[in-house]
Design a protein around this nucleic acid. Sequence first.
DNA 1: AATGAATGAGCGTTCATTCAT
DNA 2: GATGAATGAACGCTCATTCAT
Lengths: 216, 216, 216, 216
Amino acid sequence: MKNFHKISGSGRSAINTREKINNKYHRILEAAVKVFAEQGFFQSTVSQIAREAGVADGTIYLYFKNKEDILVQFFSYKARQVFARFREEVDGADTAVDKLRNLIHRHLQEFQNDRNMAMVYRAETHQNSRLVEEQIKEMSKMYLDIVSEIVEQGQGEGVIRRDLYLGLVKRFILGAVDEVINTWLHAGSNYDLVTMADPLVDLFMRGIGHNDARDF
Amino acid sequence: MKNFHKISGSGRSAINTREKINNKYHRILEAAVKVFAEQGFFQSTVSQIAREAGVADGTIYLYFKNKEDILVQFFSYKARQVFARFREEVDGADTAVDKLRNLIHRHLQEFQNDRNMAMVYRAETHQNSRLVEEQIKEMSKMYLDIVSEIVEQGQGEGVIRRDLYLGLVKRFILGAVDEVINTWLHAGSNYDLVTMADPLVDLFMRGIGHNDARDF
Amino acid sequence: MKNFHKISGSGRSAINTREKINNKYHRILEAAVKVFAEQGFFQSTVSQIAREAGVADGTIYLYFKNKEDILVQFFSYKARQVFARFREEVDGADTAVDKLRNLIHRHLQEFQNDRNMAMVYRAETHQNSRLVEEQIKEMSKMYLDIVSEIVEQGQGEGVIRRDLYLGLVKRFILGAVDEVINTWLHAGSNYDLVTMADPLVDLFMRGIGHNDARDF
Amino acid sequence: MKNFHKISGSGRSAINTREKINNKYHRILEAAVKVFAEQGFFQSTVSQIAREAGVADGTIYLYFKNKEDILVQFFSYKARQVFARFREEVDGADTAVDKLRNLIHRHLQEFQNDRNMAMVYRAETHQNSRLVEEQIKEMSKMYLDIVSEIVEQGQGEGVIRRDLYLGLVKRFILGAVDEVINTWLHAGSNYDLVTMADPLVDLFMRGIGHNDARDF
DNA sequence: AATGAATGAGCGTTCATTCAT
DNA sequence: GATGAATGAACGCTCATTCAT
């Protein structure tokens, strides 16, 4: 398998070649993600992907081992990239609350920017028989670890309660964000998802209860 | 398609017949849900379901119009039943907080009791091309409406903040619960899910922030 | 995999069922052998076999695991049967020469009776990458062992030379017979193959040299 | 199709060009025969041949019309060459028996020297649907004619019986030699094939029967 | 001449569905 | 009602061949 993402050579023709290859590789990947987003992995056919990408069926197999490999590549390359950016975003803030806000903001932003990715990601993470078990576990862990760090930092800063079960808090946050995205996807993605970031952080921090009535 | 749940006749033999039929109907339904839970809808074959149910392949088609119809029946009968119980549970409490606690408790309880249902429900609600669009919308609405009612009651009682975007709060709660279940499913379901109910309600009400530091 | 050759049941309907199954199994097998004989294994398509057998493509897979399995079944059932008969034939004679004559006679007879089998057998035993390595080895050994026995008996009887390399003699005989069949197959099978038996035995026993000039 | 074996031009560069071309032509041919020998014609891919020859897939089509043409060229060039040498060998002896001995010796020698050729030859001559019908017929005839000549000469010399069916004798000899080669190929070619020549000739001339007991 | 990416026809195989028994 | 053998449409994938570079 060729690594299409290495930067190799510097002459004009080398660049052209690499770009052309990248183009086709990415064209197929994007086409596949679009088709998967619309119909789900199992109901998508290789022919549909080829048609969407504007290539012949056989061409798919020059870039991908098989149909499943497209999904694998998507997760190990595209989606992973997105998740990597989350960390940058978090590192660009100082306080725990700012970090959390940045994380969620960026999360919503990225998923809004690439709706197809969002749909495929959502479907695949909730599949019963996961085709990309490993990658998803990894990405999920990456996300949850970031949240853990933030929470722990916040506890050090004194802005986050210490009487929390961290394992639950992580899911509490990820789940809420995912569901907000899920709703947006199902609503037809016709509103600005990112505006949900601040209200969400507010809910995470303060909950829905009244200040004065803290004895549930 | 016959409706096997109408009560028809009243003589002994009629009852026997109906029960035998129901037996087979339910056996197939349970078998299907088990198979779907293990492999996902598209990777499950009708033969596998038949084998699991102990009937011939053709028998499936006496009770279900086609493979997809099994899923439809599952949602319109089995899962719907579960969701109907949520309301009872909520109605059995007085205060908003008790209602919320009951709801979540029951939610976790039901999904813990029927892991296969939980898996199929989860997968289907996150599928890109939903085979059971309508039912899921309906059930989702049912759930979200209950939460809305609770929140509004809580606001009336003065225990829940009034400065909330209700649409977001509903997703915030549903999403967190779903993710907790999701985690449980993936962890192999080897711990008691229901114990998560109280900590979850606590998080919903108070958030993760410190009382004293309410200025994020 | 069902064993279609067990004798099971004795009621009329049981026999009918078994026969019908046998019919279809054998119809496919015969059709396949015919198609393989005409075009070779790799150039034959499953669709052609199905058409020749008068069944749907999918029906093939009710009786055979895959295309290759048809060949395997052919060898492990049909061809093996033929070779088993060789032994009976040999056992039905007393002297070594009679045994050899019977063997070759029967060999030519069987292959003449089933030209398709003859062609598939010939092609498969000379394939570079054998799909049925084991069976062929077994059948070949069976044949060569019979020849060995005959030769050894003949040596005991004093009618066969003792200064022979047995390993070579076996091939010498098998090869000559095979080539005679090969010629017959290529000539269009338009003459009586069996008449070659006696002249062949004569050649095996006396060679082509003159009695008087035994000093080559 | 160009004939690469014509001598064209006489300048230095023309020779170089021709040799380079010949080089590549032969490299591909040898590579193909090797691959065919290992996997059989239909299971070999053009890509495998190209890789084995160290050229690009497309290059094959500069020297051969298509995949089948490689086989045709192999027979019309390579194998034919071998068979042509048989005649020389036979012409180099005087008596019929010497001629036969030389023929068989050379036959075994050539096939031992080029095992790949031996395998492809064997497979192709026993294929049901012959891709190289004509060439094989021709080569086979060439061989059988030589044998015929030898036998007839031997009859003239009085060392070979006159009461023989020549058509059968030719197959008798060719078949035995082929089978000896066949055995050697399957045994892994780990012994000296040529040592079989003399024992074979002995068997052809004297048969396996006892001198004294010539009344079978 | 040489390359190898691209093509698309063609094949083996699966499986939802039907229907004769 | 119950069966399961039979069907054939549909799909993933391969690979001989072409052609722009």
